[in-house]
Computed example of a mutant assay.
Amino acid sequence: MATDAKKPSDKPPKNIVHEQAILVETIKKELREQKLYENFSINPFTKREILAAKPNTYPDLVQDEADSTFIEMIKRANLEPTKKFQYPQTSAQEIGWLTTPLLDVDKNDRRFNFNRHRSEISAYAEEYYKMFPKKPAGPVAAGGAPPPK
């Protein structure tokens, strides 16, 4: 019974012609999907340090048009998401996206404005607590036994 089971070493020998055909087909697929990139630029959405000019060259005082568009792209990339996009891009951005208040704030409207009012009793309590400040909590205040005498 043990002899009936196939061993891992009983595999048929590799066919070199088939392996070469698979390799040729793989290379054709890769060449078909390959794109040649000729225009390279810096990603404006990553923060970079400003590099100084070369020390042995005279600095140009006139900026090129390409430089101004690149600077605008960098400025736009550094803006807050609410200024870059009209709507939130992720579900996490939905929280706090709308920061404008729904109602205009009216300080005279007592329904929405709860100012601190001082009455005679609150003024008396404030002066009382100024005269007798709270003592630090000891073992008695914490529920323990009083200190020995």
Results as ranks from 00 to 15, higher is better:
I71K: 07
N56H: 08
D109A: 07
K7N: 10
A92M: 09
L31N: 13
P88E: 04
K14D: 14
N108S: 12
K107E: 08
K47M: 02
L31E: 13
K149F: 03
E65P: 07
R118S: 15
K83M: 12
E30D: 15
L31F: 15
K35F: 03
P8S: 01
I42Q: 04
E19H: 04
L51Q: 04
G143L: 00
N39A: 05
I27C: 05
D104P: 04
R32L: 10
K83H: 08
Q93S: 01
S91K: 14
M73Y: 00
A21Y: 03
P136C: 07
K35A: 08
P88V: 04
G96T: 01
S119G: 10
S9T: 08
A123S: 09
Y128T: 02
D106H: 00
P146H: 00
E19M: 06
P147H: 07
R48W: 05
F132S: 09
F40V: 01
F85L: 01
E33A: 09
N78W: 03
R76G: 09
R116V: 12
F40W: 02
E72F: 03
K54F: 04
M131A: 14
E30A: 14
V140P: 00
N115W: 10
D106R: 00
R76H: 11
P59K: 11
Y129A: 07
I71G: 06
G143H: 01
N78R: 09
P59H: 04
M131C: 12
A141H: 10
A77N: 07
L23T: 03
K83D: 13
V140E: 04
A52N: 05
L31Q: 13
S122L: 00
M1L: 08
I121F: 10
A5C: 07
A2F: 14
P59L: 06
S41K: 10
K135V: 05
E126S: 15
E80D: 12
Y37S: 06
Y87Q: 15
P59I: 11
P136I: 05
K107C: 11
H117D: 15
I121D: 14
V105Q: 02
A92V: 11
Q86N: 08
Y87M: 13
V105W: 03
T46C: 13
E127Y: 06
N56I: 03
S41E: 11
K84D: 07
L61E: 13
A92H: 08
P88M: 06
Y37I: 13
I22A: 09
T69E: 08
F70P: 00
E94I: 07
A141R: 08
Y124I: 15
R111P: 06
P136R: 07
A77E: 02
T57V: 05
Q86K: 14
P101C: 01
S122Q: 00
Y87C: 11
P59R: 11
E127I: 06
T82F: 03
E127C: 05
A141L: 05
Q89A: 09
A2T: 11
F114P: 02
K135D: 02
A53F: 06
F70C: 12
F114V: 11
I22E: 07
L36K: 10
A5V: 14
P88R: 01
N39K: 01
K135C: 05
K54Q: 09
R48E: 06
G138N: 04
P139K: 03
T69G: 02
D64N: 09
D60I: 12
A125R: 11
P133G: 04
A141T: 11
N108Y: 12
F112T: 10
I22D: 05
P146K: 00
Q93A: 01
